[in-house]
Simulated assay, not measured.
Amino acid sequence: MRNQVIHGILVIESVDYRPLIEEDSPEPTAGLRVDKKHPEIPMTWQTASQAAAAFSAIIAVFTLASAFYFFRRRRRDEYANSFSADLVMIRTRFDQMKDLVSDYGFSDEIAASVANNPRFDGLFEKLHRNNQDKASYDSCLNEFQLRQITVSVHSPLVEEYESSIKELAVIASRYEAEFRGFFRVLWAVHHLFRAVVSSLERVARDEANWLQVLPKLEGVKFDSPAQLRAEFTERMWKEVWKRKVAYQADIDDLSEVLQLTVKVYHSLSPRELLRQKSREKSTDMAPLEGAKQISDLLVQAQIPLGHIMKQSQLFYYRELVSRFDARRA
């Protein structure tokens, strides 16, 4: 920089700073921003947009994964809630069937449904007409022996009982492939209660039982065929009730088995329930056709149930099955 004095005035010449800038330094470019952390990497608009796109892709993947996770979790919870509702329904239907079969009116309706069938109107009229004549009365009985009692049983209580059995079978069928052990317990209950009502109906339709009861009414004074028929029905009810009493121990033990099983499954969390489902689906079990007794189904169910029952629960379960099986030895 040089200063000159011209006519007594100090003149300061301008300074050219261009030499101070290195000749090989890059020229500033419009739209260019230097990354402060990495100054050697210029951040252009193209780089920024690529970074934003990558970040958006990461967010999209995370969102999709989260949505899938919550979807699976919702489906799992819905399945567990549906299973829990079925457990409640199973217990409700079982209690209904147990209460019905233990009701005196149930056995009475079975006996009355058969005895009061219109098919036997003529029989009871003949028996009443010849009630005081042994030879004629016996002749009527001999005539009756040539018949087979094939009438169906219809009554409100029996129909309610049958409806509960069918609903239990429908619920059980949902879990035949997924919960093989649980299904076998339900199928054992279904078989028992089906066997109970079938056995009671057989007693009411058994000709041998009729021919055992009817001779005892010979010589008894009845005012009408209806009165004779009512007495016969009362005595047949007692025979039906005796058969029900013979099943009571089985009903009580199977009630304990079902209550224990339902309680164990009800205590499982949704995650534990799905884990048990996987175990039971992969468990190699004997085919249902190979189970000749109800206790065979309960024995087969022990394998998968052993994964979720405590040792004391499993021991009690086996004790109940043993008692059930011992009555058929």
Rank of each mutant, 00 (worst) to 15 (best):
K281F: 03
Q248V: 04
R235M: 13
V196M: 11
L211M: 15
L314P: 00
D99I: 05
R147S: 12
R74G: 08
F315N: 12
Q227H: 12
K238Y: 14
E239Q: 15
E256S: 11
A226M: 03
E289K: 09
V151T: 14
V196E: 10
R91N: 14
G219E: 08
K37R: 07
S155T: 07
I303S: 08
R18W: 04
N131R: 08
K281C: 03
N116Y: 15
R229N: 06
K37N: 12
I294T: 09
D284F: 12
D95T: 12
V114N: 05
S102N: 13
V170T: 09
E272T: 00
F193G: 08
A195K: 07
S84K: 15
G219S: 11
A249H: 02
V185E: 08
I58K: 09
M1W: 00
H266M: 10
L168D: 01
H38N: 14
Y104F: 03
F232Q: 11
V114L: 05
P39Q: 08
F324I: 13
L273E: 01
R73S: 09
P118L: 10
N142H: 07
H38G: 00
L254T: 02
S49F: 06
Q276T: 02
V151R: 04
H128G: 03
N209L: 11
W187C: 09
T92Y: 15
S139N: 12
A249T: 04
R271N: 11
L297D: 00
E23G: 06
R72S: 02
L217S: 06
S82V: 05
T44Q: 04
R202Y: 10
A111P: 01
N117W: 01
K134V: 04
R184L: 02
W187T: 14
S139P: 01
H191M: 10
A177Y: 05
